[in-house]
Write a protein that binds this DNA or RNA. Structure first.
Lengths: 221, 221
DNA sequence: ATCGCAGCTGATGTATACAAAGAAGCATTG
DNA sequence: CAATGCTTCTTTGTATACATCAGCTGCGAT
């Protein structure tokens, strides 16, 4: 606020920029995150950087040692497995809730997003696929109308490891996702919570095993 | 750190004191939480207070308006229902995991805690009951060995509304809890995840309905 | 050579000053 | 009298200085 005409608060900008950099893999897992360094990097003071780091810590993107030093979180195979398990459960629950609450508009939006997703597969555009996929899941989550559930899930969904590994998925995996999304839309349109939940849970579990298979081919997780 | 010999960091103290005050009901739901005011109240500066407020916000104990002002969260009936639903799911999952991971020592500890709980019922000591109950659930959660799951649950479990209402539970409710805990210990000792999960989920769901019944008798939730 | 300790270095924690954004109160005008 | 715009005051956001702490380095003793 001092001598600047910002669109957003400095702490928000710091949060988003650090987050983006981590998801892009600009910071190596395990690398130390020094407040002063980040502050200079983004042109703000330490105060908003500290706030951003706390938020990222709550999202498991940043790990703090006992000595209060911050590091880029590095996820073990077990950590990823745990995350997928929780995500399958929570997102399955979200799908069940959504089945009885989703609006016609949201349903239409899901159709559009899944079509976009299909085109992205055909053109081999991984980034577009990932974006459409993210949006699809976000719409389902919003339809669940459970703010706390949403909060928990957003903390789990985006993780650098996952994003990196997704680049290695084969075309078959992508098509499989596309088909599963279609099934989910059907289940939601039918208003069947059990069907929707099963479909979503299976969808996430399959993604987990695709991840595990793909990460075996990587030098390091 | 300036001119003080603290046992813990000021931000931690601020966090715990504000949290405790809220759980004790010292702050009315919906009341404004002003940084400067809290700072003077606890003898620290605004900086650690701000940090504490952010943590409490993440735990849904503090709500912030668009204008960035902080207030004591007031939970609607729907909010409480949502919370119990999520808790039943997550804590059920924790029990399932614990069934295959719990140590003999932790099992013994659960037995001791549940015995303490029984004695608290006999002597009509509600506070002791609540503490033993909290400890019991904490041991199960620790046995699940899932740090992220633990993080999610601790944010859900302790809420002022719940604690206030628990004071209204009848003796029958307490004994029911006691019996259900015993069943859970059996399931865990048998190492049966499905049994443990069902028992825990039922336990939480029953608590929810006891809460709903008790809160009907209150002037305001 | 290794262990232990002292001092140093660098990073985090806290306090405080000031800037900006909102909210509330007041006056003015239709 | 109601509505609206302006002013004032309260509250939060950011920057910065300084205190404190943790880890490291280098020296010495065993």
């Amino acid at each position: 606020m001092r001598g600047r005409a910002n669109v957003a608060k400095a702490s928000d900008r710091a949060y988003q920029q650090i987050r983006l950099a981590m998801l892009n893999g600009d910071f190596a897992p395990g690398a130390p995150l020094k407040e002063e360094e980040l502050a200079q990097l983004f042109g703000v003071s330490r105060t908003p950087v500290r706030e951003a780091l706390r938020r990222l810590e709550a999202e498991y993107l940043v790990r703090r040692t006992d000595g209060a030093r911050s590091f880029v979180a590095d996820w073990s195979t077990d950590d990823v497995a745990e995350m997928f398990t929780l995500r399958a459960m929570l997102e399955g629950h979200a799908a069940a809730r959504a089945a009885t609450r989703i609006s016609a508009g949201a349903l239409a939006e899901l159709g559009v997003l899944n079509a976009t997703l299909g085109r992205a597969i055909d053109s081999g555009d991984t980034d577009s696929f990932l974006k459409a996929n993210r949006d699809f899941h976000a719409v389902v989550l919003a339809a669940a109308q459970s703010p706390r559930l949403a909060g928990m899930l957003t903390a789990l969904v985006e993780q650098p490891v996952v994003r990196r590994t997704a680049q290695r998925y084969g075309a078959a995996e992508f098509r499989r996702s596309h088909a599963e999304h279609s099934a989910l839309v059907e289940a939601l349109r039918a208003g069947d919570p059990t069907w929707a939940e099963s479909t979503m849970t299976g969808h996430i579990r399959r993604a987990f095993h695709a991840f595990a298979a793909a990460s075996d081919q990587l030098p390091a997780v």
